[in-house]
C-alpha cells in the first residue's frame, strides 16, 4: 500500500485516492486537428522512472493533487496541491 503524502491531510494510504494519471493540457477545441485531439485523448507518457501524475483524494479532502512518483519503486518524492505553491514531501 503506497503511502501518499496528501498536502492537506498528511500521509494516507493510496486506497483513499483515485489515480488520474498524467494530466495533459487540453487543446483548443475550436482549432484542434484529429491527430492533436486523439493524441490528447490516448497518448500518455509511460515513463520508467519519475513521473508527474494527478491523484484525487476521494476518501479524504476531496482535492486533486499532483505527485512525483517513481514507477519502479513507487517512491513518492513530492506532492503538491493543485493551485498551491510548494508542497509536502
Amino acid at each position: 500500500m503506497i503511502l501518499i503524502p496528501c498536502p492537506n491531510c498528511g500521509p494516507r494510504n493510496s486506497s483513499e485516492f483515485t489515480y488520474e494519471g498524467e494530466n495533459k493540457e487540453r487543446p483548443n477545441a475550436a482549432t484542434v486537428t484529429k491527430a492533436q485531439w486523439r493524441n490528447y485523448l490516448y497518448l500518455k507518457n509511460n515513463p520508467l522512472g519519475w513521473t508527474t501524475e494527478t491523484w484525487y483524494h476521494s476518501s479524504g479532502c476531496k482535492k486533486f493533487l499532483v505527485a512525483e512518483r517513481h514507477t519502479m519503486t513507487n517512491e513518492i518524492r513530492s506532492t503538491k496541491a493543485l493551485g498551491q505553491q510548494g508542497g509536502a514531501s
Binding site: 483515485t18 488520474e20 494530466n23 487540453r26 494527478t54 484525487y56 476521494s58 476531496k62 482535492k63 486533486f64 493543485l82 493551485g83
Partner: peptide, 10 residues
Amino acid sequence: AHLESWLQTG
C-alpha cells in the same frame, strides 16, 4: 468527481 476534476484542475 468529473465536475470537481474540471473545477479544480481546469
